[in-house]
Simulated assay, not measured.
Amino acid sequence: MAVSPNSTQGESRRVHVREVGPRDGFQNEPETVPTAEKIRLIDALGRAGFKRIEVASFVRADVIPQLADGVEVLHGINVPEDVDRMVLVPNSKGLDNALRERAYFEEAAVFVSASQTHNKRNINRTVEETMADVRTMAPRILAEDLKLCAVVATSFGCPFEGKVQMERVLDLAEQFAEAGATEIGFGDTTGMCNPAYASRFFAAALERLPGVEVTAHFHNTRGQGLANAYAALEAGCTSFESSFGELGGCPVPAGSTGNIATEDLVSMFEEMGVDTGLDLGKVIEAAREAQATLGRKLTSHSIVAGPVIWAPSV
């Protein structure tokens, strides 16, 4: 891998990036992206080298109509065989529906908000009710030889309750691990994290969750997403989620803008000498295709600027 002249990294590092735009991104669009376009864009992401893509959600169609075509998308995509396809399951009913399509995905994600208020407004359940259902779902997921992933939303702050205690977040994460989750993601659902806290948090999470893949999921609502990702990396985190084109956000509450742009994250890592295993040019191309599909300018920097190209030394 070519390392830029600005890289100060003495030894090669490798990170894993899951693309979540097809689920987390498209669910927050005001209009529904046509199924054929979703399939085309996911296939483009598959060609960019992603090994993990979140492709669908088994939520009620009347709650998130933008994702009502999840089964059609799963059936229609044609990604390389080494790409793991993830689906999000909000509850046991959603899992029932997902398992009917077991042949079309390899990973299932369950989730809870660390904030009671956000959890109630998001899925109309208390945190305790959600975790009780997780303990019911987990053995069913594992029995299907699926990877069980878990997400703690509002890990870094809640728009309704304010500060969320780190101990509460890590306690929920430990409950997920006890249920059998081998990956746990921590979501900055409305972009309330800062780099100093990200550094402390991920150092603590990695210490508390030995043997678990700890994943950082940052939003760029207040412009600190990439700085938070860098802080998490320096704390030892090597697993990240992001969304091409900086698509996404949280529908609860309004105004919470998108995830960090995958192409911007990959560009930063590659310029630092951190290997992502991705073809940055193809990631940018997929983001530009998403921009054309949506018919509006997206907020990713790399869509405009493209990758950094280093001139030969004179």
Results as ranks from 00 to 15, higher is better:
D82F: 13
L88Y: 00
G157D: 08
A108T: 10
V73D: 03
E161S: 11
A68P: 01
N91F: 01
G180I: 14
R85Q: 06
R102A: 10
E101D: 06
A68G: 09
R100A: 10
A138C: 07
V79M: 12
A109T: 10
P80A: 13
Q175K: 15
Q165I: 09
A153Q: 12
V127L: 11
E107D: 01
Q66Y: 15
T182N: 01
V89Y: 12
A177M: 12
E101F: 00
Y104Q: 06
H118E: 01
P195E: 05
M166H: 08
N97L: 11
A109E: 03
V151H: 05
R168S: 14
D96L: 13
L74N: 03
V112A: 05
R135G: 00
R121M: 00
R140V: 15
V73E: 09
M131Y: 05
V73G: 09
R85L: 15
E72G: 03
E128H: 01
K93S: 10
A103Y: 08
C158V: 12
M86T: 14
T130E: 03
T130K: 05
P80D: 08
G157Y: 11
V87S: 01
V134Q: 01
A150L: 11
Q116I: 07
L95W: 01
G162Q: 07
I141F: 09
L148K: 00
L88V: 14
V73F: 12
K163S: 08
L148A: 11
M86I: 11
G76M: 08
D188W: 15
D133F: 07
N122T: 07
A153E: 09
A138T: 04
P139N: 06
I184Y: 13
N97E: 10
F176K: 11
T154M: 13
F160A: 08
G191S: 12
V71T: 14
L67S: 08
H118R: 00
P65K: 11
A132F: 02
G191I: 13
P90T: 06
D84Y: 14
L67Q: 01
A143N: 10
R121S: 04
A68I: 09
A150H: 05
A68E: 09
F186N: 09
V73A: 02
F105G: 06
D145Y: 07
F160H: 14
P139D: 03
A153Y: 02
Q116P: 05
G185M: 15
I64R: 07
F111A: 12
A150S: 15
